[in-house]
Design a protein around this nucleic acid. Structure first.
Length: 311
DNA sequence: CATCAGGGCCCTG
DNA sequence: CAGGGCCCTGAT
């Protein structure tokens, strides 16, 4: 699909703002719906029934957003989309209190210094993030990438804009006519059942992302755990990345435990207690340290990390 | 070649 | 609440 219409909007994040660390998370595995280079991000979106190809360009402390579409977009649509972008990337987040409290912390302080102005957040919708969360389960990064790419190639839409070709997610419920067996034929294994059930769940309108955003942590958690295939590991990714909850930390998967344990010099089973010191910013504090580690790794490979992660 | 655990989760007993 | 099974893949 060629996207020929284009509109430009300026986004004004709260300051300080770190473009690269906010629009690119080296800890995430690469998917076919985006490209990043310093100061620039291409990202596809499916939003309100439209396929959009978007570019974000860093302009000092603001961001120039170009939205490419097949048909001309109305002003209300554009406003709504800009608002959504602001939510997903946490562009309005006020980090001053967090910085004030922890910029002198032994571990977090260094990360804050390196990534000053970085936002948490994630580009994908709840439905899309669930698909990613499912393909992450019980396998290594390389396999997750292959599975995600295969799904894009069969059910996604290839968008052509700004000289790039990028995959866009299918709409929630879009797998209605796809059988579990067909999904299985793409070597996603038992996850086929999870994806199928989750897609049905959205298709039946049993969950509403924007309603859920307004609820408190416990309700969100309960609702998310109702989804077939979402357990304790996946739910906290969702709560943090999609629902922007920072004040909780009750589960760390084994592989992450090893890594955190090394960074913070704390035994794996004492980490959750250790993170209490970060109070209501505990997820954010760890996110800073985590991302800092991955940025370091990107600049200069960290051997023990590479070994732990096995790409 | 066979065996096994892995960036979980569901289900059973 | 512990533990087996699940799809595949790569390590051993």
């Amino acid at each position: 699909m060629k996207l020929t219409h284009k509109v430009t909007r300026e986004l004004r994040p709260t300051t300080p703002f770190n473009f690269d660390a906010s629009f690119h998370k080296p800890a995430h595995f690469q998917t076919g719906d985006n490209i990043w280079e310093p100061g620039m991000r291409w990202q596809t979106f499916w939003w309100h029934d439209k396929n959009l190809g978007v570019t974000f360009k860093s302009l000092d402390q603001t961001v120039s957003m170009e939205i490419y579409s097949e048909e001309k977009l109305g002003p209300d649509f554009i406003d709504g989309f800009a608002e959504e972008i602001c939510y997903r990337y946490c562009l309005d987040l006020d980090l001053s209190e967090f910085y004030k409290k922890f910029s002198k912390d032994k571990f977090v302080g260094k990360a804050i210094k390196n990534l000053l102005g970085m936002r948490p957040g994630h580009e994908n919708s709840l439905y899309e993030y669930l698909i990613i969360g499912i393909v992450l389960q019980n396998c290594t990064v390389r396999r997750s990438i292959t599975m995600m790419q295969t799904l894009f190639e069969h059910y996604g839409i290839l968008l052509e804009y700004d000289g790039k070709k990028l995959w866009s997610f299918w709409k929630p419920g879009g797998l209605k006519n796809v059988s579990e067996d067909e999904l299985r034929s793409f070597k996603i294994g038992y996850r086929a059942k999870f994806i199928k059930r989750i897609d049905d769940y959205f298709n039946d309108g049993l969950i509403n992302e924007s309603d859920l955003r307004g609820k408190d942590l416990e309700i969100q958690k309960t609702e998310l755990l109702k989804l077939y295939g979402v357990g304790p590991a996946t739910v906290w990714y969702l709560l943090f990345d999609v629902f922007h909850q920072y004040d909780f930390f009750n589960h760390i998967s084994p592989w992450e435990q090893k890594i955190y344990s090394k960074i913070f010099s704390v035994p794996g089973d004492e980490l959750i207690k250790y993170f209490d010191r970060f109070g209501r910013y505990r997820q954010l504090a760890v996110h800073y340290v985590w991302e800092d580690l991955w940025w370091q790794h990107k600049k200069k490979p960290i051997l023990w990390l590479a070994k732990e992660v096995r790409v």
